[in-house]
Structures are given as structure tokens and as C-alpha cells.
Computed example of a mutant assay.
Amino acid sequence: MKKLVAYITSGYPEKSFSIDLALALHENGVDTLELGIPFSDPVADGPLIEKANQKALALGFKFEHLLEISKVVAPKVDTLWMGYFNSFYQHNMQKLIPAAKELGVNGFIIPDLPYEENHPYNALFRANDLANICFVAPTDSEARIEEIVKNSKKFIYLVAYTGITGSGAAEDLQPILATIKKYTQTPINVGFGVNQKTAKEKVKGADGVIVGSAFVEILLNESLNYNEKIKKCSELAKILKSEINS
């Protein structure tokens, strides 16, 4: 069974909604949840997620809200924190990683922390049995891929193309998938540009997909009330899970 990983923007439009949405997504096929930490300059994310980040911050999102959401969600749903390094660094990684573990969070995704710069934290992640999800891109050399994936844990985040999330660009991933599999048995999940139309193609040869912008687009639809947003996100999750496993 191939896995569905879903990203949502924490605290948007409010904390209680994020909790209800997270639990509903899990009930409708989402295997792993990325709780996105709103940040003012999300450089790897496309315009939809950037807009949701800005709206969440304008509505008063605080890092403490992430902890409160995680306290409810993480014991019930496989949960990762997805955010930019500054968001983590300013809360002291030496304290934050054990705190995440205590809440039941299973790992971090930090897109602007290059592999070469994450070494100071590797021992801390290992000591707390948390994954620091590694990224592999089509532009990486085989030597670099071998280095990145050798100590990978939970899954490898394969960037489907060079660019930002949500743009839907196409790229033949079979060569890089084959290269990664030469050096690790860690599952590979494909992200960037994955939606209802592309999921079936993107998951070929991989173990799952990561979907963010397609869910966030629903959250940004102001014509929908909270219950309608949750219903539409749940329907999308069901469709995606079916598509990647058909």
C-alpha cells in the first residue's frame, strides 16, 4: 500500500480547525501529516502555501499553537513538523527536539537546512529517535545521493522537479529513483507538484506521495465554511489514496 503524506498550514485559519482537519484527514487515507509552521519567507513553497503562511501569521499564529495542536494530533496521527530552520533554531534545537519527541512527533522536515549543515543535530535526532527527513533532487549527483541517503530515516523526500511546490512541472523520475534505490531501502515519497491529476504518474516507482498545495487551496477558499473545507479535504484525501494505489 503506497503512502499519502499531507501538508497543512498549522493554525490556519485557527488552532481548533487544524486539529479537526488533521484527524479527519487521517480517517480518510492520510498516513502521515506534515504540520507546516507558518513563516514569513517560505522559499521552497509556492504561492498558495505562502499565502496561507502569511494569513496564519496575520491571524496571530504563535509557535506555542503548533505545540498545542501536536499534543492532540501526534498521539493519533503519524506527525512531522515541516518548517524553515529559523523557526526551529530560535526555539533552541537542544530543547525542541526532546519536546517534539515527548509530544509524539516523529520527525522534522526542514527544506532550507542543507544536508551538509545538519550534522550538528544528527546525534540529537538519533538520541530522541526522530527522523530528520532528507531531500533528494533530480539535480543531485550520484555521489551526493549516496551520501545523503545512507543514514536516512522514515522516508526520503524526492523533489519531483527543480522549483517550488505546487507548480505542477513534469520530470522523468525513474532514473533518480533507480539511483536512490542503489544505496538505501528507505521508502521514497515524491513531493512538489503532486495533486489529484498528477498523483498516479508521480508515484510510479516510489513508495508514496506528498501533497500540500492541493489541500491548502481548499483551506484558502473563503466561500467554504469550516465543515465544508474539512469535507472537501477529506474527499481529496480519499481520491489521492485511491489514485496512488490503483
Rank of each mutant, 00 (worst) to 15 (best):
I164Q: 14
V77W: 02
I110M: 02
V72F: 08
T186R: 11
L35N: 06
V105G: 07
I37L: 14
L25F: 05
E235H: 09
E117C: 04
P187I: 01
A44M: 13
N132V: 05
H26V: 02
L25A: 07
D140Q: 14
K55H: 08
Q94D: 09
S242E: 13
I239A: 15
G83Q: 06
H119F: 14
I218F: 01
D41Y: 14
I244C: 01
H26G: 14
Q185Y: 05
M82K: 12
E243P: 03
A52N: 13
Y115E: 11
S70A: 15
Y226M: 04
K150V: 05
K51L: 12
F17S: 01
P187L: 04
Y226L: 05
E102D: 13
N118F: 03
L236I: 05
Y183C: 04
K150H: 12
L25Q: 04
V30A: 03
L35Y: 11
S234P: 02
Q174S: 10
D140V: 09
K229Q: 07
W81H: 10
N151Q: 13
N151W: 07
F17A: 01
N92I: 07
L158W: 00
F39E: 07
L25D: 05
E222V: 00
V136T: 06
A214K: 00
L130K: 14
S167N: 06
M82L: 15
L240F: 07
K202H: 08
L96G: 02
E147Q: 14
I244N: 00
V211H: 01
K62G: 15
N128R: 12
E102M: 11
L23F: 09
E64S: 15
L177Y: 07
S223K: 10
I230C: 00
G107V: 04
K150L: 09
E142R: 06
T9F: 02
S234N: 06
T162H: 13
L220E: 05
K182Q: 09
A214C: 04
L177T: 01
V43Q: 13
I218N: 00
S16P: 01
A160I: 02
A52P: 14
G212Y: 02
P98T: 07
D140F: 14
F192T: 00
I8V: 11
D20T: 03
R126I: 03
I180V: 03
W81L: 13
F88W: 02
Y161S: 05
A237I: 06
I188K: 00
K241G: 11
K3D: 08
E228I: 00
A160Q: 05
K232N: 11
P187E: 06
A131R: 11
T186D: 12
L21K: 03
L236C: 09
L124M: 12
P47I: 06
T186P: 10
K238A: 06
H91K: 11
T9N: 13
E117K: 11
A137L: 06
F85N: 04
F17H: 02
I69T: 12
V216I: 15
A24Q: 06
E201I: 15
E147T: 14
Y84F: 05
E217F: 04
Q54D: 04
